[in-house]
């Protein structure tokens, strides 16, 4: 028994070490205090986005957010005349989603850009999309939208805790590099910093957001997702150690069952030989 306890402690230690190495330093390349943009997640998780909100699509035609297909969303607040950050977010997201294997944009989930700049136009939008250079027909999986009524922008963004402000001196918006994972009914499930996460994090967040719509064909991915849990402090998914400890001890129980039978046989075999 002591050996087993020792073994368990060792596994635990190794897992913990691995966890320690994986911690990444947040990249900090702006001169504004990044805490200004921090979202108080506890306050905003579960908020429903786009209830009774009319958006304009790529051609400027109005539609209801609630009418989008009933799948999880990656919601990307951005503005289309942005030359740096928004473009980077788009490119990073494109790269991240390339490695999300279990779900496909347009089939398993939707990517929706919404502009928080009331001066954005269809032309600016088209140029932005062209620059992103998306692989296939973008309209299917990736949507680029604007609010129909400029006066709801602030209200809707406040509702999901997204902070941004216009700097007249720099003639740009200051805003965080956040993307939001929404559940199929449009509720905020996760905030992810697109520059600080791996494809695995996006995948896990999406799987978590759609857990109510889970299909049997995705059971393997779903099982894998159970091994992780979201870490609010690091803003990423980390391995959930209790799952492995629980699984290990369950196997230990089954092992004990067979080991005890084996030991008894061994002892009695020896006794019989001595006789």
């Amino acid at each position: 028994m002591r050996k087993i306890a020792w073994l368990m402690a060792m596994t635990l230690w190794v897992v913990l070490l691995g966890d320690g190495w994986a911690i990444s330093k947040p990249t900090d390349n702006s001169d504004i205090d990044p805490t200004l943009f921090r979202v108080d997640e506890q306050k905003f998780l579960g908020v429903k986005f786009g209830n009774e909100v009319t958006l304009l699509d790529e051609q400027g035609k109005p539609f209801q957010f609630a009418d989008l297909p009933n799948r999880p969303f990656v919601l990307v607040p951005a503005y289309y005349t942005c030359d740096g950050a928004c473009f980077n977010i788009g490119i990073s997201l494109k790269e991240l989603l390339k490695d999300v294997k279990s779900l496909e944009a347009g089939k398993g989930f939707n990517v929706v850009f919404v502009s928080f700049d009331k001066n954005d136009t269809t032309e600016g939008l088209t140029k932005f999309v062209q620059q992103l250079d998306l692989p296939d027909d973008p309209i299917r999986g990736w949507r680029f939208t604007r609010f129909e009524q400029p006066d709801v922008i602030k209200r809707e963004m406040d509702k999901i805790g997204y902070k941004f402000f216009w700097s007249p001196a720099d003639r740009t918006f200051f805003h965080p590099t956040l993307i939001l994972i929404l559940s199929p009914e449009g509720r905020v499930a996760r905030y992810l910093n697109v520059l600080n996460v791996t494809p695995k994090d996006v995948e896990l967040a999406l799987l978590e957001a759609k857990s109510s719509q889970f299909k049997p064909s995705e059971s393997l991915d779903y099982l894998v997702s159970l091994c992780y849990s979201y870490n609010f402090k690091e803003g990423r998914y980390t391995l959930s150690i209790p799952v492995f400890v629980g699984l290990g001890s369950f196997l230990l129980g089954i092992g004990l069952l067979f080991a005890s039978l084996g030991i008894y046989r061994l002892i009695h075999h020896r006794k019989n030989i001595r006789k």
Binding site: Q42, L45, G46, R187, Y230, F232
Partner: peptide, 12 residues
């Protein structure tokens, strides 16, 4: 009706 509340999760 009842549903649990937990820190770090949102329930309905």
């Amino acid at each position: 009706v009842k549903e649990d509340l937990m820190p770090g999760r949102v329930t309905y």
